[in-house]
Every structure is written in C-alpha cells, then in structure tokens.
C-alpha cells in the first residue's frame, strides 16, 4: 500500500507537514460530523465556518512566509512566529 510513496525522496519536515494536513482534514471531518460547524462573522468580515478559517489561516501563513522570503536577510524564525500568531488569530477571531 505504501509503496506508492517510495519513489519520493522524503525529508522529515515535508513528511510531518503532509501527515499534519491529513490528520487535520480527517479530524475536521470527524469533528464536523459530531459537532456541525457554526458559521459566524469575525474580523475578516466573512461568514466562515471552522474549516474555512483553517484554510484561510494556512494560506495566509504561507503567503506571509513567501513575502518574508522575498525580503533579503529577513529572519525566517521571527517571521514564522508572527505568521503563526496571525494564523492563530484568524482561527480564533476570523
């Protein structure tokens, strides 16, 4: 079953990211089945449910990181932490 992944030159971080994404999607599905998501409006001005906020926070995290890459000599760690804080904010209040 897992042979289909063998040809990929795996690195640990990517493996963790994809496992994390898979766990998150499965988790959200199960959570959504037992506690149907409630739509609400946050500071983004959009009516979103929890999985939509997860998507928005992941994409905006990636966008902030790409912006930080385009700045020469930026401190990736500081940017990553602030992006993480922003994503958490979107998840909670977005």
């Amino acid at each position: 079953m897992l042979e289909i992944f063998d040809w990929i030159p795996w690195t640990a971080p990517i493996a963790y990211i994809f496992i994390g994404l898979a766990v998150m999607i499965t988790g959200l599905t199960i959570w959504g089945h037992y506690r149907p998501p409630v739509r609400r409006k946050g500071f983004l001005g959009l009516v979103t449910d929890r999985s939509e906020r997860v998507y928005i926070s992941i994409v905006s995290f990636a966008l902030v990181m790409v912006v930080s890459f385009s700045i020469v000599d930026s401190n990736t760690m500081i940017w990553a932490l602030s992006a993480l804080a922003m994503s958490a904010g979107i998840l909670k209040w977005g």
Binding site: F5, W7, T11, I14, I17
Partner: peptide, 13 residues
C-alpha cells in the same frame, strides 16, 4: 496530491 508531495520534497533538498 502524490506528485505534489514529491515536488514539496524536492524543494527542500
């Protein structure tokens, strides 16, 4: 998705 995984792995090494 599986090709994307490969691409993601290429990008780090």
């Amino acid at each position: 998705i599986i090709p994307l995984m490969a691409v993601a792995n290429y990008s780090l090494q």
